[in-house]
Design a protein around this nucleic acid. Sequence first.
DNA 1: GTTGATTTTTGATGTAGATCAAAAATGCGG
DNA 2: CCGCATTTTTGATCTACATCAAAAATCAAC
Lengths: 186, 186
Amino acid sequence: MSFHSYLASIITVSDELQEAFYKLTHTKEVKKGQLLVRSGERCNDIYFVESGLLRGYYYQEEKEITHWFAREDEFATCFYSFITHVPSAEFIEAIEPCQLVQLPHANLQKLYASFPETERIGRLLTEAYYVRLEGRFLGLQFTTAKERYDNLMKDHPQLLRRASLGHIASYLGITQETLSRIRARQ
Amino acid sequence: MSFHSYLASIITVSDELQEAFYKLTHTKEVKKGQLLVRSGERCNDIYFVESGLLRGYYYQEEKEITHWFAREDEFATCFYSFITHVPSAEFIEAIEPCQLVQLPHANLQKLYASFPETERIGRLLTEAYYVRLEGRFLGLQFTTAKERYDNLMKDHPQLLRRASLGHIASYLGITQETLSRIRARQ
DNA sequence: GTTGATTTTTGATGTAGATCAAAAATGCGG
DNA sequence: CCGCATTTTTGATCTACATCAAAAATCAAC
């Protein structure tokens, strides 16, 4: 979905607002495997994914841990770095070719100031991040690896075809071997 | 610490702002064991803890799971309910007698509108919640029960005297028995 | 296709922490 | 200071998942 259609689905986009959006965002195409943000850099942008698939990951004792996926019609950013202006602990990688819309932090602030209705975007973003994290936290504490896998497949049935087992396993908080065994029996 | 001193330590409090605060907040005293919010109710207030200790908890398969503690000089609310206006999934209980300052959501919005510098409060709150959750998420995934316990004791050495083992164990994501054994050996 | 690199599967074994049960310690109202 | 409720400790056993290692399958470049 285009960023514009997405916006129109959550707020009323006046002509002025539409124009402001065109001025304050720019589109970006990235190839498979390309990094958008590296650990240690500041992440000053939000990306809206028009098409393709991104993942955020970080290193934990030499191992890559996938922290999130963002597919078409979702926002992606290193949330903590974006809100605090601190260098990011994570990488953002395109695991499919992507069509993105980039919105810099400063421009988002301009939008808030001129078009109060856009505050809703910020709110939705914060909520989405918080809720996503909370869900994963509870999942880690209270569900088995198999249940987490089943839930993920229910919400994102295509993910298995689009991301590697290793990415999905670390996202679920288990090893690749365990995920492979979970899939085998059933 | 009084709410006023706390505020003065993070933002400059003009006379007008101080007056607005007096109008828009009110103090509240609660006894040990008293509930501030019940699951199913909306949580429309933030509490600043001037003295005492609160905990947030919810039920997971009949068991109480402590989600957070808030001691003096900290804010407490059912964060998700507060930002989304959805009924709370959690309870807030005073586990010590508390002196609180209550700030309703609507009044916080008024403050934001009239005193832009107060936006910092909202930002700090969001960040604090997000960071706290992220820390616990990573802890659950990558550290042993003992490490989590040691970290908690480093940050809150008094907590063991102020909260029960059961509360602390569920906060750490382990059973009471395991926490008891962890403490025994060392 | 053939080849080498990468990803996924399978097998054997180890372990942190859960569960169930009961004893011991602590706290508290009268 | 006694009796009862609550909290904490200790013991025995069980299990989900990790780790290490190697085989099998898939992918991608030439």
